[in-house]
Amino acid sequence: MTAALELGSGESGDNLLARVRTVLGRRTEGRAVALLAVVAVVTAFLEPVVFTSYPVTLGRIALIGLVALGLTAVILMGELDLSVASTLAVSGVVMASIESLPLGIVAALLVGLMIGAANAFFVVAVGINSFIATLGMLFFLRGSAFVLSNEEPVRLANRDAGIAFGKPFLGPLTPRMLLFIGAFIALQVFVTRVRVGREFYAVGGNREAAYDAGIPVTRRIVTGFMISGFVAAMAGVINTLERTAADPTAGSTVLLASFAAAIVGGVLLTGGRGSIFGTLLGATSLGILQVALTLSGVQVDVQNIVIGLVLLLAVITDPNSVRGVVGSVRSLLQGRSRA
């Protein structure tokens, strides 16, 4: 009786190849993997140092990727958080301004959580579009960082602790990399295995449906922004420790790099699609690329051109766009030949 209707459930087949295809077809990271492979292969030929001194590359990936991981939580819900870089700067300044190191770290992380909560408040309670709310927060926090720091770098009271923090801790891995890996695992598990995190996809993919299903959408958004704020503050703490001072202008390149990592990783800016793993792949591609370009001594402007091309490549290799481009090129050529 139940077999009466074959509704055609995708192309799930019996043989292994078909199963692999089905599993791969469900993933959103395909393009990020392909891009990473291309970047890695090209780099391996041109600048093998990128891989022989892998701790440096890992350090760069952690620098780019940490903030992006937290940001992804917000983007999955279809919201934006433009205040991450300023959060990084403010939390660093707060941390360095406090004499006691542990107290400073705790205060900085609390500041991150509070900023996340404030962002969420404006978005869900006041009802401001998250782009605008966090843009406002971006300026407010950047200004605060300057005021709090008296417009100059704030030196850490305990510089030796900071310098020690920048040294390898476990094998070649520095605490920054370990924290990055930890944050990745925690967030990956959170959005795939934990109900609250998994529901981020529902909030971003079909918010109406999420409301109807009784998911506390508001609470989820608050959680997402607080994750983003916390992770950005964590990055601020790590940077301040490693540099032994908090610079109020810190993180000027973080915002765009984080968004780039998420986009290259296949995270849809309108929400509902993407993964933490994708963002990791995106950050890895960009990290390898940046280190390779730095090693080649390529001008920073040219580096930006290359990164821009990679971003565009990541976006236009969406299967639909590729088909569109191929089709229009072909019809253009046909039109020419006939005219």
Binding site: L63, P153, N239, R243, A245, D247, T249, A250, G251, S252, T253, V254, T294, L295, S296, G297, Q299, V300
Partner: peptide, 10 residues
């Protein structure tokens, strides 16, 4: 080999 950090300490 020249790099340009654009005044970003990180």
């Amino acid at each position: 080999t020249i790099t340009n950090s654009q005044y970003d300490a990180d």
